[in-house]
Design a protein around this nucleic acid. Structure first.
Lengths: 150, 150
DNA sequence: TTAATATAGATGCAACTGCATATATCCATA
DNA sequence: TATGGATATATGCAGTTGCATCTATATTAA
């Protein structure tokens, strides 16, 4: 039994409230951010994560399975997300010579530009929907607590 | 600009880490719980919320728009979720005489039994995936911080 | 070598979601 | 009391997800 529980195997009210709070907070903030993206005529937030991993990576490229590990996307979802990104010209698929099962996913100039454009909106959203609600110390505390669930 | 931000409109690292932590924690815990449900041969977690609201409600029944308000489900998603619950015999749609646009959604005995069965698994999951990770005080602190985002 | 197994990535299909709109009814007011 | 607008719920459609499986290639071990 966990550190925090009643005798009968029922989670304590605090645990329950933390869980409900986690679900609702994530849903609300995510919905608010997605709405801001939509208003700005931007693609869904999920695209950002992939583009950002590629920008951070050496040579602006990664293997699909590497993106998968960094983003928590399921393999089949990532494969199709890459389809969409490629259709919009934001990434290219290139051959990976050392293993012909593999591919490089390479970010294009358009992809880099899009990521920056998305960040403008994203940064403002984070400020508005999260930053405004916490002091610096509280934000650190929240991040620390959440990291225990990762 | 928020309480917590740098000059240039970029969210502070603490805010960014809180946000990433929020997304990842929710995804991971939700995925773990859904997996537990699936292993136990149970329907998706989303069903639980509706059944639970109905159990708590007077007479075991609510109007769809009341469920909507209590669960954050979108109207069209709820309408279809009720279809599925009804198909499984867990709820019934009944007429609402005072306003014939409306309906009652009534939980059945099977619905009550299913909710209890789901709770067995749910409670253990919450213990394992959240309760084990926090002291009582920490859980309260986390819930309090998350409630600011609601 | 070859056969068995594992890994990288893609894809058909059914279920679910979001969006827009439909349908039915109610309410306010001219 | 007719009409314009609001509210409650449902639904067609296109896009997305999850699941299972496929193809292609790599690795291991006999």
């Amino acid at each position: 039994m966990g550190k925090t529980s009643l005798q009968n195997g029922t989670p304590s009210p605090a645990i329950t409230r933390a869980w409900i709070g986690l679900m609702r907070a994530q849903q609300r903030v995510l919905a608010a951010i997605e709405k801001d993206f939509k208003s700005a005529g931007l693609p869904p937030l999920g695209w950002y994560d992939v583009l950002w991993e590629l920008v951070k990576a050496d040579g602006g490229r990664l293997r699909p399975f590497e993106i998968e590990a960094r983003t928590l996307l399921a393999q089949y979802n990532l494969s199709r997300l890459i389809d969409r990104l490629e259709r919009e010209g934001l990434v290219r698929r290139e051959t990976f010579d050392a293993d012909s099962r593999g591919r490089w996913i390479v970010i294009t100039e358009e992809g880099r530009a899009m990521r920056e454009r998305m960040w403008q909106t994203y940064a403002r959203s984070l400020e508005r929907h999260i930053g405004d609600k916490f002091s610096e110390a509280e934000a650190r505390e929240l991040a620390a607590l959440l990291s225990r669930l990762a």
